[in-house]
Design a protein around this nucleic acid. Structure first.
Lengths: 205, 205
DNA sequence: ATAGTGACCATATTACCAAATGGTCACTAG
DNA sequence: CTAGTGACCATTTGGTAATATGGTCACTAT
């Protein structure tokens, strides 16, 4: 019962085209150097060597370009966390790493890639498709770990899986949603540990 | 080992003075009707019938007045939640009510008293003394409930109390910090229930 | 001494207009 | 037909001068 995201691929023009990639590359460069707002579509056009109008043959809007970059960014974070998770077999340790990994990666986005954060913030506020998809994937990842833990006997099996997953997601959310994380700087050191602890206690059989 | 809050009573002039109360009354009225930013100190002076300069005999700044109002507001929320908690004896039910009560009260502040929310937001962002004190009181309340539950045998006793309290506080925080709550509207219905459930599972002996 | 204020200052806000930006489209070159 | 664009429009944004606001202080009246 899962409908396609509101804007799965509203892309214009040929999906697979050299110029499209050039635009994305230029946008990544410009957005992360000068920021999303400060970069104009004309800047990107100049960088690619075409006219502004041509950009719009490939992207519906500036936001659509931002959405690409943002999606890449989120995929990167996700990949990093998944790598950390894959290093261990214990479901409980996976949960801990998931928590810590997302917090650190999001934090890095906020500090190291300050400019890109700007996009992520807009994306989260306006609930761009890329963000909705990201959140869904994170929830799916969480559910996988939970199921694995249930099968291995590490986690309790009484509470409905969906409820457990939803609750744990709510616990984690403030630490990988950039908007929320912003208001939790004082806690980012201790929170992942303390909260994984609490969550794992709640999962004990 | 608890130091006094950074600004316990930086109040100017006589603490107990009719005019001070009049100012607070007028400020409550104006702030909740027109908003904190839109209300000028001169407006308050006019409402009270004195000159603007006289206001400053009682308050160090406009923010100090806002802090008063904000503190009242928070005390009200707190009182309401404490009343709901006092209705039951079961520590687990107390926790549930605490969670639900704070969420609903904060939500009401956000919607019904939209104008006052403006102050609460500034207060939370800039960590005014009133907010710091409020957070400390909430944590203390939480600890009380936990200790009660431990003594009655309802809650586990292995995990250090301070750690349990800190973790649960982190779970609750997004729902009674106005800044965070703002980004969680989609979850305010389900979250208190689901999260109390998770927390209580983590507390089971 | 106490209750109270007008006049004043530095900064923040507003109001306004010119320039810049996101976005479209009819059009040309090949 | 395809690749590409200059000219154009409505809306934002940026800059700036005028105004309003937070805050102080020397001062008066009692």
């Amino acid at each position: 019962m899962k409908k396609a995201a509101p804007t799965p691929q509203p892309a214009r023009g040929p999906i697979d085209h050299e110029v499209r990639d050039q635009i994305v590359t230029a946008a990544t460069e410009h957005f992360s150097r000068y920021g999303y707002e400060k970069t104009t579509v004309s800047d990107l056009a100049k960088a690619v060597g075409f006219s502004k109008a041509y950009i719009y043959k490939f992207f519906e809007s500036k936001q659509a370009i931002g959405e690409m970059i943002c999606a890449n960014c989120l995929r990167e974070i996700e990949a990093e966390v998944m790598a950390a998770i894959a290093e261990t077999d214990q479901p409980s340790e996976k949960l801990r790493r998931m928590f810590k990994g997302f917090t650190e990666a999001t934090l890095r986005l906020l500090f190291r890639d300050r400019k890109l954060y700007e996009i992520a913030a807009s994306a989260a506020t306006e609930r761009w498709a890329a963000v909705v998809a990201y959140e869904e994937r994170v929830q799916a990842l969480l559910k996988e770990i939970l199921q694995e833990g249930r099968q291995s006997g590490d986690f309790e099996r009484k509470t409905p899986l969906d409820e457990t997953a939803a609750a744990i997601y709510l616990v984690m959310r403030p630490y990988f949603n950039p908007l929320l994380l912003q208001h939790s700087f004082d806690y980012t050191d201790a929170a992942p540990g303390q909260l994984s602890g609490l969550v794992l206690r709640s999962l004990s059989p």
